[in-house]
Amino acid sequence: MRKSTLIFILIALVLGIINYTVKQRVIAIENTLIIAQGNIRKTEETLQLLGAEWSYLNEPSRLQLLVENHLGAAPLKGTQLVSYEQLPSRTFEETAPIHLATFTEPR
């Protein structure tokens, strides 16, 4: 058998093995992708369901009933609102300097 034939067979073999492994890996990744997409879909469905439930639980008339029965809170009145400008500003007194806490080494 000639040397070149041997080399070619060897190259073909190596390429074949590489091709096979790459293909197997692609198939495996594709399977993972399909599973991941399925999971995304399932999660989306669950989210949709949970969103619906959250919205149902947050229905204002239900909340109002719960508040009236359990909290005794009344609707907010306009007079309870205060704008930022109306807040009294914090006063810093010039005479009294800020005292920093002094730490003493524990004996």
């Binding site: 369901l49 969103g51 959250w54 919205s55 947050n58």
Partner: peptide
């Protein structure tokens, strides 16, 4: 982009769900 999950939701101006499609 969200995954197509059937008929689209209808939400209020704050995003609260008013109509949704469940499986």
């Amino acid at each position: 982009k969200p995954v197509y999950m059937g008929r689209a939701n209808i939400v209020d101006r704050n995003g609260e769900i008013l109509a949704t499609t469940i499986i």
